[in-house]
Every structure is written in C-alpha cells, then in structure tokens.
Amino acid sequence: MKPPIYHISLDAFWRDPYPDLKTMRAEAPVAFVPELGATLISRRDDIFALEKKIDFFSSNQPEGLMTQLIGQNMMRKDGDAHMSERRAIFPTVSPKTVKNLWMQDFENFTSTILERVLPLGEIDMVTLAKELSGEALRALTGLTNMTWQEMDRTSQGIIDGCANYAGDRAIEANCNDCTASIDAHIDARLAVLKDAPDSSLLSVQYQAGLSMDQIRANIKLAISGGQNEPRDVIAGMIWALLTHPDQLALLNSGQANWMDAFNEYTRWQSPIGMSPRQMAQDFEVHGITLKKDERVFFMFGSGNRDERNFARPDIFDLTQDSSKSIAFGAGPHFCAGAWASRALIADVVLPSVFRSLRNMRLNGNTEFGGWAFRGPLSVPVVWDT
C-alpha cells in the first residue's frame, strides 16, 4: 500500500510545524508530503527503531543536495565507511577532550564576551549566541583564522543550500561561495597544523590519514550544524526561561539543573527537526510499503512531542521525563558533537549569562522559524547595568 498524501502550507509549516505533525502522528504516521517531495515518519518509536535499519534507510544519498554542495561527509555514509570517519574525529569531540581541553576555551571566551556586552544593557540574544557558537567552532574545527562572523555566514549559507529544494540559483551560488571560503581557510590553517598538530577537527583528521575530500566535507558538515544548532539553543533557552519564570525558579532554587533545562528544551523545540534518508530497498511500515530510492524524512521534532512517550509533550517543563528525547538522533548517526554542545550551553554559557546579566528580561517579541532546523529569529533582552 502506498502512503497517504498529506498536504501542508510551506509557509505555515516553516512558522510552526507542530500542529501538522500532531495530526500526522494521529492519522498518518507515515505520510507522503508533496510539498516536500518526501515521505515523513512522525512517531518517536518508529523513528527510534527505523533509524538503526541502515540496510533499508540509507544515509548514502549521492544525488542529495548536501552531498552535491559540500561533498560526501560522514553523515552521508553508512556502516564501516561512516564509523571509520567517526573514529577519526573522536579525539576532538570525546567527553574527555571536551572536559580537559575545550571547556577552558569555552569559559574563557564566554567570560570575555559577557564582560564586553555587560555595560550595554541590551542585546539581541540571537546575535550574542552567534558569536558564542562561532567562537566555539573556531576552536573545535581548528579554523582560528576565520572570524565568528564568517563562521556564521558560511554556516547559514550551507544550511540554506542544503534546504534549497526549490532550486533557487541565488541560494546555490551563495552556498558555493561559502564552501569556497571554508576551503580557503582550511588550506591556510592546514599549512600550519601539519607542523604543529593539535586536537582540532582539522588536525586530527589529517593525522588519521583521511583524504582532503573527506576532511573538507566533514569540516563543512561541522560548520553547518555546529554553528546554527548551539546558536538556536542558546537564544531559545534564554527566551524559554524568561517566558516561563516558574521553570527558571526551579533552576534558581536547585530543584533542577542546567542540563535538565538543556534536555527539556531540545526535546520541546528540537533544533534539529529532521534527518533525511533514501530507501536502499523496499520496506513496510504500518502496512505501507516504502519503495527503493524513495526519500524519507525522520521527523525528530515530531517524535519529541509524541504523546505516546511524553506526559506533557507541548509544554516546556523541566520536571517531566525527557529521557526518550531523540534531539540528537537515535542510531549510528547520533550527533558526534553532542558532548561539546552540552558542555558549551549547559555547563558554561547559560549559567554565565543568567549570572552576569542581572534582572534580564525580554524587550520585544520573539518569533520562531524552521522545521528541519528550528530556532528563534530574534530574542531582544535588557538587563540592569
């Protein structure tokens, strides 16, 4: 049986995908959405199980936008090919390296940035989050010759390019310009790191003997996801806590900790809302046959609000059990940067921001956007100086 067809408004889905996803979970958990050209899988337990079936749901998508634009990175590989590259980058992103090396960097630049903005009394938290996320990526990737502004620009350009299903030539051209910039920065830094290796992503891949095509593709992957996702979570969590003072009170009283807040926020708003797959062979789900070569989207954002798994799925509540969250994925492609992201945001940035910016409060409206990647567009705040 073919999947049922479910139509969406692309604009409404970008502004708020959750009403449509709730309907899909209830009525059509496997549904073809013509506007996206893909079959969406929306229930959490289906995603959790199927993501591991790489013989059917393949990440290898040679004709996909991401592969065409940035190269075949490790996220677009399966099995041994994927795991060999994952092992190569592990020395950069392991919990031990994050704790013993990157945490100090995170603390240093966060302190410096907050000292600079403190006298201002106001800022858009999305802008501040861009800088914090960009500085973390400069250290992790090894591209210390790239400004945080260029890190943010190239990341957004790649993301826009990889979501350019309409084939907009201007978006594609901008993405190509961004990837060329990253290549130029890689070439300049690699000339230094060959003689003075360190624990950065660029250096450890080179030391592991990966080809330049592999190195370039994985650096671009890290920039595309490693900039926008922490940015969106930092700004979004600040907005969420300021609009939910009862939840902020739990943190201030010690009844909840910052990691609780991080885990619940990433469940609730799912900064990574979707992960694409291509069917390697036919497979049946809920009586529906997914045919070889069809495109399938695992809707993480939907799974994280599945009523079957969460007591109050549409509510931001630090006291509820969020252990079944699939915010970072559920299978072999579980986000390699998860430890670094948690350390940066939950251990350093969020407690530092709320400690340093006294009586912080919102100073305008906040709108969210996105369904594949989701975050606030602006979070204006003020504080007492």
Rank of each mutant, 00 (worst) to 15 (best):
M1R: 09
P3C: 09
P4S: 03
I8W: 09
A12F: 05
F13M: 10
W14E: 15
D20M: 11
A38R: 11
L40T: 06
R44G: 08
D45T: 10
L50P: 00
K53P: 02
I54D: 06
N60D: 15
P62K: 00
A81K: 02
H82V: 00
S84C: 08
L101K: 12
F106R: 03
F106C: 10
S111P: 01
T112K: 14
L118H: 13
L128E: 01
L140Y: 07
L143T: 06
L143P: 02
T144D: 01
N145M: 01
R153C: 02
T154N: 12
I159A: 14
G161L: 07
A163T: 14
G167D: 05
E172F: 04
S203H: 08
V204D: 00
N218D: 12
D232F: 15
D246T: 12
L250I: 00
N252F: 01
W258Y: 10
E264K: 08
T266I: 15
M274P: 04
R277C: 08
D282V: 05
E284M: 06
T289P: 08
R295I: 00
V296Y: 00
S302Y: 09
S302T: 09
L318H: 00
S322D: 12
P332G: 10
A343Y: 02
S352A: 15
S356H: 06
T366M: 10
A372Y: 14
R374W: 06
G375F: 11
